[in-house]
């Protein structure tokens, strides 16, 4: 880690004043310190936001919940309201990282998790995301864990978060404060595709701070499933994950949400894939239609072609489990 200045403001305004291109906010620190130790990130100042009043989980006027940016992943997953009303979110969080990391990691920080691309993490090799313009060895290298959707010539990295896949499916809203005041960002717009600026994971400006994540009233509590497929039973990043949520009426699908993790630079959703389910019976045949639409345009690299078929099957399984209200520990199959 490089030397840096440290400050711990007590108010949001104060934190924003300290922000800038060479400063980073720190909450749980689980990803930031990891990156700093690898010399991937070298901030000159850390702004410790743990003194800010962003730890509440509060009801919103529209019947949803507002989750403060500093609520830990563990506190969120084990909050009784989340468990009962948004089990998809609870499942996704508990499928990620380890109990220790979930105790530390914050809601806001989870949204800012950076990719686990091997090349991004190794300062001894080129990477466009770490050093723009240096090249992308993953494209022609070890790319079994990389993107099949939405990738660019410059970057084939994937977003590693589980929680974000559920938040995308639940259509959460990210509330952000900046010098110009607050703004609300739909979850689908928060993360971005790499394009020719892969160094930017999301639309947050350097001087903006996440205050909260808002969940809408609808939590799909009766029929949802987070399914995570990985190389070991726990404590591993997803090869493919699915957040599936259904509203059923006598076996007929009235509403559906579907998001994929581990396949793109952001949680992957497609309106057509959800619309095709509406009004149809909850069956594997129906689910397969949605899977095909969701994966339309998928392009394999040398080692990750399996993800396309795996994701298809995972979507079918997750929707089936959601329909039958089946959940397994840690999001396992």
């Amino acid at each position: 880690m490089n030397p840096f200045a440290y400050s711990k403001p007590a108010a949001v305004n104060e934190a924003l004043r300290l922000a800038g291109p060479n400063a980073r906010f720190i909450a749980g620190g689980t990803n930031l310190l990891d990156l700093m130790k690898e010399n991937v990130t070298r901030p000159e100042r850390l702004i410790d936001i743990n003194g800010l009043p962003l730890r509440g989980i509060d009801a919103t006027a529209s019947g949803g919940l507002r989750i403060g940016a500093l609520v830990s992943n563990a506190d969120l997953a084990w909050d009784a309201r989340i468990e009962q009303r948004y089990p998809l979110l609870a499942q996704a969080i508990l499928a990620g990282a380890s109990p220790q990391l979930r105790n530390m990691a914050s809601t806001g920080g989870n949204l800012l998790q950076r990719t686990r691309c091997y090349y991004f993490y190794d300062a001894g090799v080129p990477c466009n995301k770490r050093e723009p313009g240096s090249g992308c060895p993953a494209k022609d290298g070890l790319n079994r864990i990389h993107a099949i959707l939405g990738a660019s010539d410059d970057c084939v990295a994937v977003n590693p978060s589980d929680m974000c896949v559920a938040l995308a499916a639940l259509e959460a809203v990210v509330i952000v404060a900046g010098p110009q005041g607050e703004r609300r960002i739909d979850f689908a717009d928060f993360h971005r595709l790499p394009g020719d600026t892969p160094e930017r994971d999301n639309v947050l400006a350097d001087d903006e701070l996440i205050l909260a994540v808002e969940l809408p009233a609808e939590g799909f509590a009766a029929h949802s499933r987070y399914l995570k497929i990985r190389d070991r039973a726990s404590y591993a990043f997803a090869l493919v994950s699915v957040a599936a949520a259904l509203e059923l009426d006598g076996g007929i699908i009235r509403a559906a949400r579907l998001a994929l993790g581990g396949v793109a630079h952001k949680p992957w959703r497609r309106q057509e894939a959800e619309e095709v389910l509406i009004g149809k019976p909850a069956s594997d045949e129906t689910f397969a239609l949605a899977a095909d639409l969701l994966l339309e345009g998928a392009r394999p690299l040398a080692h990750n072609g399996f993800k396309i078929e795996l994701a298809r099957r995972a979507v079918v399984r997750a929707l089936g489990d959601a329909a039958h209200s089946i959940q397994h520990q840690g999001g396992r199959p």
Partner: peptide, 13 residues
């Protein structure tokens, strides 16, 4: 009282 990884926690915090 909560388990955390000491390697990813700053002493100053």
């Amino acid at each position: 009282g909560k388990r955390v990884n000491a390697c990813l926690t700053l002493a100053v915090m």
